[in-house]
Amino acid sequence: MNLTLKVWRQGGPNHKGKIETYPAEDIPEEASFLEMLDIVNERIITDGGEPIAFDHDCREGICGACSLTINGVPHGRESAITTCQLHMRKFRDGDTIWVEPFRARAFPVLRDLVVDRSAFDRIIEAGGYISARTGSAVDANATPVPKADADEAFEAAACIGCGACVAACKNASAMLFVSAKVKHLGNFPQGQPEAKRRVLAMVRQMDEEGFGNCTNQYECEAVCPKEITAEFIADLNRGYAKASLEETLG
């Protein structure tokens, strides 16, 4: 396949970036999107240029490292996959593809297509944990968990924290991410001791990081590679309202 790439190039966090055009010729259609970028980068290096910087790690859709907004959609148009799982056969020969970083004020560009997503780490640090006794393992069935609750928590726990929800949101809101984390810990008895503190602290950190506010357009759930539902955002809203009320009256 022969393609044209329009790629965001930016030398560093404080550099002014711009879109540059690269030919991507003789690309095998079984290549993944990242492999296609590898091929293009090898040619750029051969020609003496600076390769395009992009994030990647496991390349099998489970680590959350890869990003890229492809033709305006984080992880591309195909649903429920990450960029590393996107294959070139989904494009047509001769296509022009726009490749941009995940954009949000809270995700500053470090270089080219690499953005700093440590804001998510700080949200997790604020409350995305449970306090558990370490040492000898507790018997697996000591605390009964209803199957439906466990299933729902598992759906929320599928979030890999890639940040596509933020990148797709017209308001750069991180509420799908935060709601998934609050849900997955709060759905278990083990997550109850910190439940109230968790939701307040994580939402406050989210606001502090400069993410926007959900306006219920659900672009986030449409692009989420793990199909996290916006229903969790409704649960987060209710949980936050309840915890705030308890704090006010408490």
Binding site: W8, G17, R103, G212, N213, T215, E219, A222, V223
Partner: peptide
């Protein structure tokens, strides 16, 4: 106040290629 925060949260540089997957027109013009 929310709109102001949301515009700020998007950052200074926007997407060169804009796309919408499922947000309704009504929701984008509230």
């Amino acid at each position: 106040l929310l709109v102001k925060q949301n515009r700020a949260a998007r950052g200074e540089v926007g997407y060169a290629y804009n796309a919408t997957v499922q947000a309704s027109r009504a929701s984008r013009t509230m």
